[in-house]
Nucleic acid binder design. Structure first.
Ligand SMILES: NC(=O)c1ccc[n+]([C@@H]2O[C@H](COP(=O)([O-])OP(=O)(O)OC[C@H]3O[C@@H](n4cnc5c(N)ncnc54)[C@H](O)[C@@H]3O)[C@@H](O)[C@H]2O)c1
Ligand SMILES: NC(=O)c1ccc[n+]([C@@H]2O[C@H](COP(=O)([O-])OP(=O)(O)OC[C@H]3O[C@@H](n4cnc5c(N)ncnc54)[C@H](O)[C@@H]3O)[C@@H](O)[C@H]2O)c1
Lengths: 229, 229
DNA sequence: ACGCGCTTGTGAACGCATGCACGAAGTCGA
DNA sequence: TCGACTTCGTGCATGCGTTCACAAGCGCGT
C-alpha cells in the first residue's frame, strides 16, 4: 500500500472550493447581511438555507469547504460567518474595477451604488466616442480608451467590465488583458478569447429571456395536450 | 423496430430536454445567426461548437435532444437548424414582456433594441413613482403599476422583468403573478417566492463580481505561495 | 456531574452532465 | 455502381454535484 493521501492531481485540496459552491457564496453572504440587519446573532443551517433558497444539507456542505465555523447544537455566529465568507470571496480588500463602453447599459452600471456596498469601486470609465469622453457619470469622468493602461496600472485594477457592442468586445477585451486585467465581466453577446489565467464571466440578458420562453413554450404545449387540469 | 420505449416515470421523454442543454440553446442560436450572416449554408458540429465555445460532442448531444437534423458526412444546414432551435425555444412567436421599475437599469433595458431582435417585445413599462409615470421611454410610455392587470391581460403577456429595488421585488412579483405572469426575470437582489408553475430566473451583477473576486483572490494567494514561476 | 436534545459536519449513495470512442449513415469521386 | 471518406448520433465510462442519513459534538437543564 502506497501513500494513502496522495496529492496527485484530482484529489481535492483544502483550499479548493467547488465552482458550484463558489457561485452560491455571494448568495449566502447577502442572506447573512439581511439576518445581521434583522438583529440575529446566530443562525441555524436550516434558517440560513431557507433565507438563501437552498437545501440545508447543501448549505452545510458548502460552508464546510471553508472550514468548521459552526457550533453543534447552536448554529453559526452570523457576524463571524460573514467574516469567513467575505474572506473566502476575497472581500477583505476593496477591488478596483474599470468599465469600458459607457452607453445605455454602462451608464446604469456606473451609477449603481450597489457595487460599492459589496466590495468594489469603479476607478475608471472608458469609451472611444468623442461625444462620451469627458462626460461626468457618477463620481467619474469618462476617459478615452487610450488612457486605459495608465489607470489600470496606477489603480492596480484587475477586474474589468465590458459594456460595448458585441463587435468591439474582443478588441476591448484584448486591450484590457494587455493592460493587466485578469478578470472580465462581459455583457456583450460575444464569445471572448482570452489567454490562460484570465477569467471571463458572461451575462447575457437575451439568453435568460430565451430560457424563460423555452419553459413558457412547454407550459403552453402541455396545457393543450397533456394535462387539461 | 418495436415500441420498446417505456413511458415509465424517470425515463426521459422525447420532448424532455436537460436544463443544462436548454441554457446552451440560446448560445447555439446566436452562433448560428452569426454563421448565417457570414454566408455559411452548412456547418459541422466541430465548427459550430468552436463558434459557441463548447466541445463538439456536447453540442451534438445537445442537438440530438431536439431531433436528428444533421446530415452525416456533411453537417447541419444552418437555416434549417436555426428554425429547429428557434422552435424548441418557443421563438416561433413573439413574446410580449412587461417591465416593472423604470429606474436606472429599467431605462437601459427598455431602450435596448436587442430584445426585439431576439423574439421579445416590451409591451408595458410600470412604476409607482409619480415622477416616472407618463415619461416616454423608447416606444413606450411609463404606466402606473395599477394598470398592470389590464396590460398583461390585453397583451396576453406571460413574461415579466423586475428592476425595482429589492425591498419592493416580492410585492411586485406577487402582483405580476396575480396578473397572470408565469415567468419572471429578476434583477433585484432578493429571493422571490412564487407558486408552483411560475419560473423565476435571477440575474445578480454583484454576485458575478464577487465570483470573479474569489478567483482573483486565489490567483493572488497562489502567486505568493505556490507557483512563483 | 451527567444525560438529553439539538445541530453540525461528513461519509456514502445517487443522479446528472461531460467527454470519449465508435458504429451508422450519408456524400462524393471514380 | 461502388468504395472511401466524412460527420453525425449515441452507448458507455467518468467525474462532479446533490441528497440522505447519522455519528460526533456542544449547550443546557436538572
Ligand atoms: N442596454 C441594455 O439593456 C442591454 C441589455 C443586454 C445586453 N446589452 C449589451 O450590452 C452592450 C452595450 O449595450 P448598450 O445598450 O449600452 O449599447 P450602447 O450603444 O448604448 O453603448 C455602447 C457604448 O460602447 C462604446 N463603444 C463602442 N465601441 C467601443 C470601443 N471599441 N471601445 C470602447 N467603447 C466603445 C460606444 O461609444 C457606446 O458608448 C451591448 O453589447 C448590448 O448587446 C445591453
Ligand atoms: N443599476 C444597475 O446597474 C444595477 C445593477 C445591478 C443590480 N441592480 C438592481 O436592479 C434594481 C434596480 O436598480 P436601479 O439602479 O434601476 O434602481 P432605481 O432606484 O434607479 O430604480 C428603481 C425603480 O423602481 C421603482 N419602484 C420602486 N418601488 C416600486 C414598486 N413597488 N413598484 C414599481 N416600481 C417601483 C422606482 O420608482 C424606480 O424608478 C435594484 O434592485 C438594483 O439592486 C441595478
Amino acid at each position: 500500500m502506497r501513500a494513502a493521501l496522495s496529492e496527485r492531481s484530482g484529489r481535492r485540496r483544502r483550499s479548493d472550493v467547488p465552482e458550484a459552491t463558489v457561485a452560491r457564496l455571494p448568495v449566502y453572504l447577502r442572506a447573512l447581511h439581511v439576518l445581521a440587519d434583522g438583529g440575529s446573532s446566530t443562525v441555524s443551517s436550516e434558517a440560513l438555507a431557507a433565507a438563501a433558497g437552498v437545501g440545508s444539507a447543501k448549505l452545510r456542505k458548502d460552508l464546510s469547504y471553508l472550514g468548521s465555523y459552526g457550533t453543534r447544537g447552536v448554529g453559526y455566529d452570523v457576524a463571524e460567518l460573514v467574516l469567513h465568507v467575505s474572506a473566502a470571496l476575497g472581500l477583505g480588500r476593496r477591488w478596483p474595477v474599470v468599465l469600458v463602453g459607457v452607453g445605455n447599459l454602462g451608464h446604469a452600471l456606473a451609477g449603481y451604488g450597489g457595487f460599492d456596498e459589496r466590495g468594489f469601486c469603479v476607478v475608471g470609465l472608458f469609451d472611444v466616442d468623442p461625444a462620451r469622453v469627458g462626460e461626468r457619470v457618477g463620481e467619474q469622468v469618462v476617459r478615452h480608451l487610450d488612457e486605459l493602461d495608465d489607470v489600470v496600472h496606477s489603480a492596480r485594477a484587475s477586474i474589468g467590465v465590458i459594456t460595448t457592442p458585441a463587435s468591439a468586445a474582443q478588441d476591448v477585451c484584448d486591450r484590457l488583458v494587455a493592460a493587466g486585467i485578469t478578470s472580465v465581466l462581459n455583457f456583450a453577446p460575444a464569445l471572448l478569447q482570452v489567454p490562460a489565467g484570465v477569467d471571463v464571466r458572461k451575462v447575457d440578458l437575451s439568453n435568460e429571456l430565451q430560457i424563460l420562453s423555452f419553459h413558457e413554450h412547454r407550459k403552453a404545449a402541455r396545457a393543450l395536450t397533456g394535462v387539461p387540469a
